[in-house]
Design a protein around this nucleic acid. Structure first.
Ligand SMILES: [Zn+2]
Ligand SMILES: [Zn+2]
Ligand SMILES: [Zn+2]
Ligand SMILES: [Zn+2]
Lengths: 570, 570
DNA sequence: CATGGTTCAATACGTTCA
DNA sequence: TGAACGTATTGAACCATG
């Protein structure tokens, strides 16, 4: 509805349906943009209404009666045959995608690629998402993996013959893991992997929890890297322990600071959380009740904070940020978008499944209100919700549900670290080597902390982590869906020993690998994409192993009972 | 009522009714939220007040005088047509529900969890989301025309868009995902559409199926249209809850009263009804089998009745009356009378046609034996035969038979309420505001019942109905032929959207209007007669619209599947 | 350019609850 | 009654093809 009455400048074109300004002929009649959209949306639909069929249609009244508006559209000669059929639209989208990635692949080679930041900036400014552009030098630097597997079609350890290999199964199978873990013969690898797995099962106390909160926020920011989304999230940054993720667990603190109330309840906007009791698996363990309302907890948190003025308090902004829903989640592209219809239905379905499952990670965490975290350990302990989320995330996946409880637990325990690493990668600031927290003015650089305890972290070089993040972000630039599917794949990573039904796990692993591959092939004609992502997976395993090792060195005693259970720590 | 006077930040929008802050345009005028709600609640009501009609309406005073507030609402241009009708609201809710379950179909698990084990255990028990069931939209619209047409030569027609297109694309397209996930080729959609289209007719196994059988059968019978043949059906009448048809549906009742056996089988003298299963469109719906014999049903009904002694039972005489053939049918004058020879042969023929068709309404109903109706809902539900009769009635008319099956169904669905209103008007007692049932010493006054639920019937004032009946009966005093032809005319009332062959429907409508006019002009020299009947038709549409609304407000769950099908209720 | 589709923030309906 | 909310629809702006 245009105010300016200089209709002449639009060549006096007027919508024959409503009289609004018209720009062109649409579907057989000169119409305005709104009537054009209206007709496209409704021409094939049945419209129910209650009128005598003679409602006047003007600019003002056109939205009053859909039936009469549609009738008028037809009466002025608009033809629904001119609306592209679903199939035609599909072809069109396909073609657009092809052209787009063709164009981008040309852009990649030009000499200008400089720093990551510039890349990111370019992403922001250049309209079409340029996710697959990889700066040459970065790609090179990622190539730490000796003899990296370039073809992931054949998952590690998984020689699942009956897997749903949808296509190109002819490609020689190589196991990424073989490379990472350096074993040379398949059997050796397997065994090795298993050993590692069993060793791994126990880690990651709580670093996960807390750091996740913070990290999550970062993800929001990163998401805004998405050219389409832009602006709203300013790039301020509030750092927080992130390495927490990897291990700041080791920081000791007065036990008094670990409040017994330091756990959480689930409180989601949509989901009513039943109150209940936390019952530890181990009889003697502490029990927590979860009967407080969120409001009560908020109040309590405030009170606590006020009562302990001497304790260094964490910036309120951080707290607020942490408690917001989805504050750092990945933002996958909407699968509703017509563009994805090119994919086979099954692939679409799996992708949707991943995104749906991932939503479990997007719930707000309220635990942060309960007690203001004063340090990293309490931050960790207050993050129980993280693990619940992880469990729910896994449960969303039918393949996971189909497993025995033992296997489910084994997978969760065995792969949690890697999943979390992927999850938090999005908010890692490569420039500062810190996790960035949006909405907070501060950036907490953790490298110093890490360096404090060289003995503890000697095995976990910050470079490992940052290299992984760098590779991951550059690889998936802007396309959070890749990271999401990666988390699902990681969940099913079948390196764990003593799985009851290893075949099913492998099948699931393969299935989601294939899904990701299909997606990448569809979206990025650049076939290198699969290779790149494959490399990233290799790095993930490397860094995961190191994080795991460090975990075992940490002080167990201060962790929340649930976390101990999670990791079989005593 | 907002305190902050920074109205500018709301773009200076001000409620044109009360001056409060406004957010958007509501029902045709820029209003505040409260006036919007007020208008929605009261626009259809009559508000009586004892003021002089000049009360000022401001933010502070707006709730003082509802009458003046409503008047101001109208005066500033708010339109009650923009308030969704009951049907539209119902569809809207339906759509929201569908979308919601679609979205959450993957949302398998309850959100809360305490310990991992509990989480996992729950996983084991919880089932994957039920696949989304989609029920097809019916093609017919039940749109109402609010205003009465005063000139019946030009019926209030809805220019059905693209009426002549016979392709299946008129069927609303549904996303493939909604229905099944497996189709892999784009054609899937197309096929689906076709399925939907053909299903439109074929499926509906039941309700429709049922009526379809009848439709087809009806056609068979038409052969026997020969006037000589139908001696068997004397003009006694098989009444049935009629008003039930129009509205008492809304009365809620314990679900126990709705016996799953409370439906009927077709058992006509001439028509052998194939036994079969009722398969609802919606997978989860109840299934009814129709294999019992009438005797069995009778027994069952008795048993049921005895088992529920607390339920108020309807007088046995009524039952008997209902089961007698044609206990309350109209008795048209014999067209053999020489008096009618003045009329042109074609007119005579048409009149005879109407009378013959009407005889289909005069067959006895046996369903009443099955289960003694305890109240209006069960009465309604037991009245399946009514609809079969209606179908046969329509099938007798050549213009109707000439239509496509889709259009036939659309007409039946769209006009059934008005036809029934006319049909039952004859037994409405204007003195008592009750329907009188012959052969019974009792008169059942329903007004009390209707008034019981004011909320439900607020829009359907008993006065509306009685005014119509009064007008109709006074107008046609003694001449049942008028009412009969009126039913035929009503059948062809072409207000329905998306008729394939709207031209033919209009032609039929006009034809019978002309027939009636010729008859009236011949019989009643008083030329006012045409005008009077015209007025009655206008009232019929008004009362029909209200009845229609009430129908949509009713508890859908309690209705017989056939009725749901008939009215596209879910 | 002309004319299709796509997107997303604004809009406008009903619903809920205190 | 009216504020707050959930959602489907709308339409301006934009993107892509030929
Ligand atoms: Zn227009
Ligand atoms: Zn209209
Ligand atoms: Zn107002
Ligand atoms: Zn007043």
């Amino acid at each position: 509805m245009y105010e300016d009455r200089t209709e002449s400048f639009t060549q006096g074109k007027v919508c024959v349906v409503c009289g609004d300004r018209a720009l062109s002929c649409n579907f057989g009649a000169i119409t305005c943009e709104s009537c054009k959209a209206f007709f496209r949306r409704h021409a094939h639909k049945e419209i129910y209404g209650q009128c005598d069929g003679s409602c006047p249609i003007t600019v003002e009244t056109r939205s009053y009666c859909r039936r009469c508006r549609l009738a008028k559209c037809f009466s002025v000669g608009m033809k629904k045959d001119l609306i592209l059929s679903e199939e035609q639209k599909q072809r069109r989208r396909q073609k657009i995608l092809e052209n787009r990635s063709k164009r981008q692949s040309q852009e990649v080679f030009p000499p200008d690629s400089t720093s990551i930041q510039q890349d990111l900036t370019r992403v922001k400014t250049s309209n079409p998402p340029a996710p697959n552009t990889i700066s040459p030098n970065s790609a090179a630097s990622l190539d730490r993996v000796p003899g990296a597997t370039t073809n992931w079609i054949n998952p590690p350890l998984v020689s699942a013959p009956d897997a749903l290999s949808t296509d190109a199964s002819t490609v020689p199978k190589r196991d990424i893991w073989e490379i990472q873990n350096s074993p040379t013969d398949p059997d050796g690898i397997k065994r090795l992997a298993f050993e590692t797995a069993s060793a791994q099962i126990a880690r990651l106390p709580d670093g996960m929890a807390k750091s996740r909160n913070v990290l999550d926020r970062g993800a929001d920011m990163v998401t805004s890297t998405n050219p389409l989304e832009d602006s709203s999230s300013q790039s301020s940054s509030g750092g927080l322990s992130n390495q927490g993720l990897t291990l700041p667990v080791t920081i000791c603190m007065p036990s008094s600071q670990i409040s017994p109330t330091g756990h959480t309840a689930q409180a989601d906007l949509q989901i009513q959380v039943p109150t209940g009791q936390y019952t530890s698996l181990t009889p003697g363990a502490t029990t927590f009740t979860e009967e407080e309302t969120i409001q009560q907890k908020k109040a309590k948190g405030k009170a606590l904070k006020e009562l302990n003025p001497r304790e260094p308090s964490i910036d309120c902004n951080i707290i607020q940020a942490l408690s917001e829903p989805c504050f750092f989640n990945l933002k996958p592209p909407s699968l509703e978008s017509k563009a994805y219809h090119v994919l086979e239905p099954e692939i679409q379905q799996r992708l949707m499944l991943c995104v749906e499952a991932y939503r479990e990670f997007c719930r707000p965490m309220v635990s942060i209100h309960e007690k203001v975290p004063q340090n990293y350990v309490s931050l960790l302990n207050s993050g129980e919700e993280c693990y619940h989320q992880l469990v729910r995330f896994a449960k969303r996946l039918p393949e996971f549900r189909a497993l025995s409880q033992e296997d489910q637990i084994a997978l969760l325990k065995g792969n949690v670290i890697e999943i979390m690493i992927v999850r938090f990668s999005k908010c890692y600031n490569l420039e500062t080597n810190a996790w960035t927290i949006p909405h907070c003015g501060t950036v907490q650089n953790v490298s110093g902390i890490i360096e404090e305890d060289n003995a503890m972290f000697s095995e976990f070089c910050i470079d490992d982590y940052s290299n992984f993040v760098r590779a991951a972000l550059e690889c998936c630039k802007g396309d959070d869906l890749i990271l999401i599917v990666l988390q699902v794949i990681t969940l099913f990573w079948p390196h764990i020993s003593n799985l009851e039904d290893v075949a099913s796990v492998r099948a699931a692993y393969t299935t989601y690998l294939d899904t990701l591959e299909s997606y990448l092939n569809m979206k990025y004609l650049d076939s290198n994409m699969v290779i790149e992502v494959n490399k990233v997976m290799g790095q993930l395993r490397q860094v995961g192993k190191k994080a795991h090792d460090v975990m075992w060195k940490s002080q167990v005693s201060e962790l929340h009972p649930l976390l101990k259970e999670m990791f079989d720590l005593r």
